[in-house]
């Protein structure tokens, strides 16, 4: 009995993959068009150029940065002049009384729970909205979705005073909670859409086998969700890692992450702005690693969540 039921969704899978393959074939054909390739290369160069400029700038001595553009290094390099130095990185990393390592650790302490908490909550909520029938589900889902349009700026002061009243300000909790609050609407929406895509028959089959919600969630839904989870995790990781506003408003001296430190690098009157490019690259290293190592999930997962069919 159970084998019969379980076999039902089997044809689904080849159909989906074959349609995916069709799409991929079409895309490959369209993209191998020489014009399209040229355009793609041009766009790629244009988009990468500022980052390359920043990278080169970060290795130039202070006076050079102030007096000429980064593109001039090529001429000087051919002329055999020493145009690069590690001084900016040295200043950004080791100058000042506070150690950058503390801020690095803080960044991780802030980011990891701020990714884990909203994903956990959003998974449960999304499952509820997708597969548990209850009264007012649609209304509630629209309400959650609508929360996305609330700009976080207007919530800062009320939220902070709530934390002060609760007596938890100055701890990491305020930052974790804030990031979770701001991330949940989008997380629930994305994961819900992905869960809805799982064929109903699959869930029903599991229910027929006697699986409760908990078992369906862990045995059926969760394994299928991996790309969507990874996509959202990367998304949230990058957002929290690069966040300055929430860290600055909700945090204090003990919780400040790397972004706050980088923002201070320019000095009281902005005179040390030449260090900023180095600071930017130091804080960029981790998100870059995360993104590059997980990027295949990123594309697959985002498409899976947002486009139906």
């Amino acid at each position: 009995m159970s084998t019969v039921e379980a076999a039902t969704p089997a044809p689904e899978v080849p159909r989906r993959t074959s349609s995916l393959n069709n799409r991929a074939r079409k895309a490959r054909k369209a993209l191998s068009n020489p014009w399209a390739s040229t355009l793609a290369v041009v766009i790629a160069i244009l988009w990468t150029l500022p980052t390359v400029g920043l990278l080169i700038t970060s290795f130039r001595p202070e006076l050079d940065i102030r007096q000429s553009g980064w593109w001039t290094v090529f001429g000087s390099a051919f002329a055999g002049e020493g145009v690069f130095s590690l001084k900016n990185y040295e200043t950004a990393l080791f100058d000042g009384s506070t150690n950058l390592a503390v801020f690095f650790v803080n960044s991780f302490v802030v980011t990891l729970p701020a990714v884990f908490i909203p994903i956990t909550l959003a998974l449960l909520a999304a499952y509820g909205f997708a597969w548990v029938d209850f009264k007012g589900a649609d209304f509630l889902f629209i309400a959650v979705f609508a929360l996305q349009i609330v700009p976080i700026q207007i919530t800062l002061v009320p939220l902070l005073s709530a934390y002060v009243d609760l007596g938890i300000n100055g701890s990491f909790w305020t930052i974790w909670l804030s990031h979770s609050i701001f991330a949940l609407p989008l997380a629930i929406f994305l994961l819900h859409n992905f869960m809805k895509e799982i064929p109903r028959s699959l869930i029903e089959a599991a229910r027929m086998d006697g699986a409760g919600h908990v078992q369906v969630f862990f045995r059926v839904v969760l394994p299928l969700l991996t790309p969507a989870l990874a996509a959202f995790a990367i998304f949230q990781f990058l957002w929290v890692w690069n966040d300055l506003l929430v860290a600055l408003v909700m945090g204090d001296l003990k919780t400040f992450p790397l972004t706050v430190r980088v923002a201070e690098l320019a000095g009281s009157r902005g005179g040390d702005w030449h260090v900023l490019s180095a600071g930017a690259f130091i804080s960029m290293v981790v998100p870059l690693i995360v993104f590059l190592s997980l990027q295949r999930y990123f594309v697959r997962g985002l498409l899976a969540g947002s486009v139906k069919g």
Binding site: L156, V157, L160, S161, Y163, V164, D165, N169, L248, V249, D252, L253, V260, A263, E264, A266, S268, G270
Partner: peptide
């Protein structure tokens, strides 16, 4: 406890309003 921030002029009113 010394806290320096280039955003202090914007942040101070926020902290004052929040009672912090």
């Amino acid at each position: 406890n010394y806290e320096g921030s280039r955003e202090m002029e914007a942040q101070l009113p926020v902290r004052v309003q929040a009672g912090n």
